[in-house]
């Protein structure tokens, strides 16, 4: 059992990080904090992909003389893409936050919803 936990520690860590990130996204009302949580949630998934690709004693998958065992390159490629997608999402989200802040003068979710419910809150420009 203990051996199993130790040999799967990378999974446990990934699960913990993913859940912490997801919790921050759902539970927090601050729009920037939500995005930070979202980032952690996305980042944690990198571990799910990359960690199993590692072979102890292997090297980075750059083929050269003198090495025989390489870690799996495919997850690296996928995660490179995922990182880029993550930062693109973050940037777009922050741009939205900036615009929301200008339109509502707040970046707290509850406050924003309250301002839209106010009788003169909504409406078109």
């Amino acid at each position: 059992m203990l051996a199993h936990i130790w040999s799967h520690f990378d999974y446990w860590a990934m699960i913990f990080l993913a859940m912490a990130g997801l919790f921050i996204v759902i539970a927090r009302g601050n729009l920037i904090k939500k995005l930070v949580g979202l980032g952690i949630f996305q980042t944690s998934v990198y571990l799910l992909y990359v960690a199993p690709g590692k072979i102890v004693g292997g090297t980075a998958p750059i083929v050269a003389e003198g090495f025989r065992v390489y870690s799996n390159p495919l997850p690296h490629v996928l995660i490179l893409t995922a990182i880029v997608v993550g930062v693109a999402t973050l940037a777009l989200g922050l741009a939205l936050v900036v615009r929301i802040r200008e339109a509502y003068d707040s970046i707290e979710e509850d406050e924003i919803l309250r301002r839209d419910q106010a009788p003169d809150g909504g409406g078109e420009a």
């Binding site: 995660i79 990182i83 930062v87 973050l90």
Partner: peptide, 24 residues
């Protein structure tokens, strides 16, 4: 984990760009 390309990108993006964007 031998993922040097990922590491380099994560350092540049996660620790670099993301932080700058968030601070901005």
């Amino acid at each position: 984990l031998d993922a040097v390309d990922v590491a380099m990108t994560e350092a540049a993006v996660g620790a670099g760009i993301s932080t700058v964007l968030l601070l901005g």
